[in-house]
Nucleic acid binder design. Sequence first.
DNA 1: GACGATTTAATCGTGAACGATTTAATATGG
DNA 2: CCATATTAAATCGTTCACGATTAAATCGTC
Lengths: 153, 153
Amino acid sequence: MPKSAPAHATLGLDDLICFAVYSTGHAFNRVYKPLLEKLGLTYPQYLVMVALWTEDDQTVGSLGDKLFLESSTLTPLLKRLEGMGHITRSRDPADERQVRVRLTKSGLSLQQDSDHLAGCILSATGLSLEDVLHLRATVAKLRGNLHKAALVE
Amino acid sequence: MPKSAPAHATLGLDDLICFAVYSTGHAFNRVYKPLLEKLGLTYPQYLVMVALWTEDDQTVGSLGDKLFLESSTLTPLLKRLEGMGHITRSRDPADERQVRVRLTKSGLSLQQDSDHLAGCILSATGLSLEDVLHLRATVAKLRGNLHKAALVE
DNA sequence: GACGATTTAATCGTGAACGATTTAATATGG
DNA sequence: CCATATTAAATCGTTCACGATTAAATCGTC
C-alpha cells in the first residue's frame, strides 16, 4: 500500500445514512404535494393540522415540542393557517405569554377531507404494512438517539 | 358502536412514517450543524461537496440527479460555494447550455478536514453499524418507491 | 411587594427547496 | 438551411427552518 494513500475511504452520498433520510424526506414531500394541494395545505401545515386533530387547543410551544420545530418556524406557518380560516390564535388569559392554537370548523372538517391520505401514502411507499411499521420504529429510535447526541456536543 | 363514530382512526404524528423521516432529517441537521460550522459549510453544501469529492467536474444537472434537487435550489447554493472559493462554475465550451462545476484546491482540501464526520455521525446515531447499513438500504428502497409513485400520480 | 431570572412568542436575517417561467443553446425535421 | 422542439441553467415568488435577538409576562427570592 502506498504510504500516501488517503486514510478515508472517500465516502459517497449513497454511503451516508443522513443523505438517505434527507432525500427520502424530499421524496415524501413530492408525493404529498399534489394530494395536499387539493386541500390547500403545504406538507408542514398538514403536520400541524394532524397534531391539532389529535389534540386541539395547544400552545405554540407544545406544537413545537411535538413537531420538533422552533417558534420562529411555527409562528409564520400558524399565521397562514389562521389566514386560511383553519385555526385561531389567541393569548391565554391565564398566562399571556402563551398563545393557544385552536381548530375552527373549517380546520376540523379538513380531517375528513384528508383521511384518505394515509392509504395513498402507504401504497406509495411500496412497502408492506409490516415493513413500514418496523421502519417507522427504527427511524423514530434513531431520531431519539440523535437528539440525545445533539445535547452532549 | 355509535353510528356517528368517525371512519378514520385519527392518526397522530407518531403514526406517520413520513413524519418520522421528516423529523429525523431535521435531527441529523442539528447534529451536523456544529460540526460543519467549523468548515464553514451548511448541510446541503456539504452534500454537494461529497458528490464532488466522489466525482469532480460535474454539471449542475448531474449534481441535481444525484442529490434529487432542482437547478433552482442548486444554482444559488453553488454560487455560495463558489464565493467561498471551494468550487468553480463555468460554461462547457462543447455545450454552452451546461455549467461545469469543479473543485478548487480549497474545495479538495476540505475533504481531509471532514473525514472524521462519518464517525461522529455514526456514533450519534446510537445504532450499530449493522443496523445503520440495514436502515440505509431500507430507506433508499423507500425513496426509490416514492419516486416511482410520484411519476404515476 | 419589588427586582432579577426565566419563560414564551414573535421578529429578523440567512439559506434551503420547490414550481413556473425565462433565456440561451443545441437538436431535429422538412 | 431554417423553423420548431427540446434541453440546461438561471430567475422569481412563496414557504419552510434555524439561530440570535427582542419584548412581554410570569416566577422566585428576599
